[in-house]
Simulated scan of single mutants.
Amino acid sequence: MNKIFGFFIVFFLLVSSLGIGLWVSGEFNMPGDRPSSKSTVIVGGPQLGGPFELVNHKGETVTDEDFRGKLMLVFFGYTNCPDVCPTEMQTISLAMQALGDDADEVVPIFVTVDPARDTVDVMADFVSAFDPSLIGLTGTDAQIDKIKDEYRVYGEKGEGEDQDYYLVNHTSFTYLMGRDGKLVTVFSYGTPAEDMAAKIREQI
């Protein structure tokens, strides 16, 4: 029941915040759901993405301005995620490999929605398991809440669960941002790596 309720909350927030200009051909996935082979494509100019200041997995403070001039692949999740997050990070890693030399024009970014547990050291261990270009970002609760608002991301700790061992319900889209920091396209969870790479290559 909580899973179904969470789905409708996120769907409502996403649709209401993006407004006119959003065309969806895909589906929302929560942890444990079967992946979709479709992607969500943005048409028009929804206001999604924006300024942020966070800490990367090396302990360095970074802002959105540090990534200007590059395409960004942004995914929001958490390191204790049992399936969706590691699966999508593997997909992004395969997409980066498929890009070959063009991968230098793309920065894959993993933003935690669980900053209480995802410290700099934890993030460093997590991203080391995937493509070496992957950047993990964490921060204070306020900093994470701000970037979640900018990207219209849903992320909430499961109710009634252990304070140390818990799941976090969260949006499972991967955002492709342009060199100017503006949204280009959104991929739903389960989009094949080759499809992701093909769409990214269109922007290079």
Rank of each mutant, 00 (worst) to 15 (best):
P51N: 05
K58G: 04
E60V: 10
T61R: 15
V62K: 06
V62A: 06
V62T: 03
T63Q: 08
F67P: 00
F67M: 06
F67V: 02
F67S: 01
G69Q: 05
L71E: 03
M72S: 13
M72R: 15
V74D: 01
F75N: 03
G77M: 02
T79M: 09
V84T: 13
P86H: 06
P86E: 09
T87L: 10
E88H: 05
M89Y: 06
M89E: 14
Q90D: 10
T91M: 11
T91S: 12
S93Y: 09
A95G: 03
A98N: 13
G100H: 07
D101S: 13
D101E: 15
D101T: 13
D104N: 12
E105N: 12
V107W: 03
I109T: 01
F110M: 15
D114W: 08
R117F: 07
D118C: 08
D118A: 08
T119Y: 11
T119D: 10
V120H: 05
V122A: 12
M123E: 11
A124C: 05
V127Q: 07
F130E: 04
I135Q: 02
G136R: 07
G136W: 14
T138E: 04
D141V: 10
Q143Y: 10
Q143C: 05
I144K: 01
I147L: 06
E150M: 13
V153A: 08
V153E: 09
E156N: 05
K157T: 14
G158I: 11
G158A: 15
D162Y: 05
Y165L: 13
Y165C: 08
H170K: 02
F173H: 03
T174I: 15
Y175G: 00
L176T: 00
M177N: 01
M177S: 01
G178N: 14
R179F: 03
R179G: 00
R179C: 01
G181P: 00
L183P: 00
V184R: 13
V184Q: 11
V186K: 03
V186C: 04
F187Q: 00
T191S: 10
T191R: 04
A193G: 05
A193C: 06
A193V: 08
